[in-house]
Nucleic acid binder design. Structure first.
Length: 137
DNA sequence: GCCAACGTTGGC
DNA sequence: GCCAACGTTGGC
C-alpha cells in the first residue's frame, strides 16, 4: 500500500471539518501532477492531512475510501478527478513544516521539493519517521 | 504584504 | 514551438 500527503488550507477546509464529516470528497485539484497522484491512489492507501498557509503542519491521517472519479466541482468532460477520504486519526503531536525542513532524512520529500504541489507521494521511510516524530515530539 | 516557484496563456 | 507576461500558490 502507498502513502500520500494532501494539502488543504484550513480556512477553506480543515482537519476538524474532516473529522466531523468523517468521509469527504477531495475535490478542487487543478494541477496535472497532483491529478496523476490522485489517480494512483488505491483503496486503503493512507495520506497525511497537511494544513497549508496557516498552521503549516501535518495534523492527521486519512484513508482513501473511493478511488479517483470525475471531480464533481469541475466542468463535465474536464479531466479533473477527486477521491473520497476518511479521517483515521489525528497525530498525537502535529509535525510542522519547519521541523521537516531541518530533518535530514526528509529533505527529499515531495512536500519540501515541490512546495506548491497539493497532492504528493510519501515514501514508507518518510511515513514511518513522521509518525515517530508525531509520537515523540 | 512580499516574493519565489511554477503553471498557463498568448504573441510571434 | 518558443518564450515573455501573467496569475496562483504558499512560505516567510
Amino acid at each position: 500500500m502507498a502513502y500520500w500527503l494532501v494539502k488543504s488550507e484550513p480556512d477553506a477546509f480543515s482537519w476538524d471539518q474532516q473529522v466531523k464529516n468523517k468521509v469527504e470528497p477531495w475535490t478542487g485539484v487543478r494541477n496535472h501532477t497532483a491529478k496523476q497522484n490522485l489517480q494512483k491512489m488505491r483503496l486503503g492507501d493512507q495520506a497525511f492531512f497537511y494544513h497549508s498557509n496557516s498552521g503549516k503542519e501535518i495534523v492527521g491521517i486519512v484513508e482513501i475510501v473511493r478511488e479517483a472519479y470525475h471531480d464533481p466541482s469541475s466542468d463535465e468532460g474536464s479531466p479533473w478527478v477527486a477521491v473520497d477520504v476518511k479521517a483515521v486519526k489525528p497525530l498525537p503531536n502535529p509535525v510542522t513544516l519547519a521541523t521537516m525542513k531541518v530533518t535530514a532524512a526528509l529533505e527529499g520529500m515531495a512536500l519540501l521539493k515541490y512546495s506548491r504541489l497539493s497532492v504528493g507521494p510519501v515514501t514508507d521511510t518518510e511515513w514511518k519517521l513522521i509518525n515517530k516524530m508525531a509520537k515523540d515530539a
